[in-house]
Structure formats: structure tokens, C-alpha cells
Simulated scan of single mutants.
Amino acid sequence: MRTSALGSLPGTDLGAGVRLALEAVSVPWLPEFPARGPWAGMVGRALGLLDGLGAELSAGEWRLAAVPGLDQRRAKAALRDDLDVLEENAQGLAGPLKVAVTGPWTLASAVLRPLGGRVLGDRGARRDLAQSLASGVRGLVADVERRLPGVEVLLQVDEPSLPSVLAGGVPTEGGYFRHRSVDRPEAVELLRELGGDLLHCCAPGLDVELAVGRHGAGFTGVSLDQDLMNRADWDALGPLLEDGRELWLGAASTASGVAPTADALTRRVLGALRPLDLGPVLAERVVLTPACGLAGWPASQVSALLRALATTAERVGGELGAG
């Protein structure tokens, strides 16, 4: 059974954070460091990837613009710095390397149009944003693979707003109303435009069939917070795991900032997985992760959490493999 993490780390020490992300888990990842500024968080990083679309940060909100603003240029520079540090520390790395990007629906929910109103409220604008993002992501993947020839990029698409988008729950800019729900076919289409291997959602209510079902958006895995999963989620996941899909299980809560013990985490994971009665299939197709990003955690607790996940994965993999 493998382990990984999902996105952000605390502080601004890129070198130390990247080395941790390369060494402490079995599926390394390129972390985000949002403490550097809004251009280094999940929305800022995604806007720094846009191909042919400008954006600017004004009064704490991102909006599309005719030309790239200062903070969008900072976002591009911050990502270049991240990739330079990754390249320096990951020479000789072979196998999967997970890189996360904000998905088109969460980005459209967070970004305003030039004259106001969320991009989400304009069908043409959200398509333009998705296509621009997809082009930029293709460039990012190619850049990482050029810098690290032995690496296979595993693209994680972060979509915490997707359940609200589909349910008509995203507030308008003023907050008094809600945007209309987006039809499932359009949601699938723009996710397919971006591509990706793993859909991560740390909000309740994700339709896992939309992400990894045979007629869904084409992801091979889904990443969910264990605390937010209900019986219907588990019932849907069983057949999908048997069909070759993966579950990246956010087994360790990130709410407290304190790492659980490996004993407690092992009990928790086994309690969730054993009822599926899939035995060795689970050891092969479940990856253990924190529930979400770790930007607000003390660095010492981040290390302790990743160690606990590694121990838990070894124990749970042995239990399920033996079963």
C-alpha cells in the first residue's frame, strides 16, 4: 500500500519542503507553499499557468484581465522557482511524481470576469478559462518531464467546489444569490478538456461516478476525505476499485494540526476498508494520504503525520494482503 500527500506545506523553505515531499512518501509530489503569498496558493498557481488569458489580483480577489497583472506574473515566477528547486533535488528520480492543479470548475467559481461576476456564471467565459488552463497544464507537464526524464507526471486536479457547482450552491459575487447548477455533461466535458489522473475533492457530495466511472470524466483515481464519505460513497467505490480505479483515501484528518498515532490511524483505515471485502485489491489500489493540504500545520507535525501514514500503509497492506 502506497502513501502520498495532496498539496500544500507550511512555511516558505522550498528546499526543505520539496525534499520532504520526495522522501517521506512512496508517491512523491510537488508541494505548494501558500505562505509565500496569494500567487503561490492553489488559485494563484493555476492562474499563473493560463495560456493567453491575463489575470490580476485586486482587493483580495482574482479577476480576468486584458493583460497579465503583477500578481499573475509573480505566480508564474513562483512556479518556475518551485520547478527549479524540484529539478535540483530530484535528479535521478524515476516513476510517478504527482503535480496538482486547480480544476476548471473550482477556478471558475473563484475568479471574477473583468467587469464583475464570477466566471462560473458565463458559459463562454468558463469554457475559455478551461481551455486556457488545459493548454498551460500541458506545458507544465512537458516542462516537468523535460527537467526529470525518468519521471511520469501524475496529474492531480483539485476540485473542492465541484459538488457545489453541480448542486447550484456557489454564491454570486454579492453573496445574495446562487449560480445555476451546471449540467453534468458540461461538467464532464471541461474536466476531460483538462485531462488528469486523479480528481481530488475535500468537500462532501462528490459524484464518484462522474470522476472515475466508465462514462465519467476519465480519471483513474479519486481522492476523498474519509471523514466526509458516506455509505453511498463506499458502495459506489467498491465496484470501481474492482474495475481498476484507485482510491486516494484522506485517512488522516487535517483539522487539528496534530498528527495521529500510527496505531489510531491503522484502526481507522482498517475499519473503513475491511467492510468492502476486497482483500488484496485494496492493498494495490488504495493510497493513504492526509485529508487535505497541510499549510497550517507545524512542520514537525507534518513529518510525524507522514511517518504515521507510512507505518499504517505497511500494516494495513500486510493485513489486507494476508486476507
Rank of each mutant, 00 (worst) to 15 (best):
V157Q: 00
L86P: 14
A78E: 15
R127D: 11
R74Y: 09
A108K: 01
V157F: 02
D84W: 03
Q91A: 13
L140K: 03
A130F: 08
L133V: 05
D71W: 15
L112M: 13
L86G: 11
G150H: 10
V111Y: 11
S109T: 03
A130E: 09
L97T: 04
G92I: 12
G124M: 05
E88A: 11
A134F: 08
P104R: 11
L115S: 12
D81G: 09
L115V: 02
E145T: 01
D82M: 13
V153T: 10
R126G: 07
L115Q: 15
A94G: 09
V151C: 01
R127A: 15
L154F: 00
W105P: 07
L107W: 09
L154V: 08
L120C: 08
Q156T: 02
Q131W: 13
T102N: 04
A142H: 09
G95L: 06
A77S: 13
G117F: 07
V153S: 07
D71N: 02
V111G: 10
L70S: 14
D128E: 14
A108W: 03
L79H: 04
K76T: 13
L107P: 12
V141C: 07
D143F: 00
G103F: 15
R146H: 01
E87P: 09
V153C: 09
D81A: 13
V141E: 04
T102A: 14
L112W: 10
R113H: 08
D84Y: 01
L148K: 11
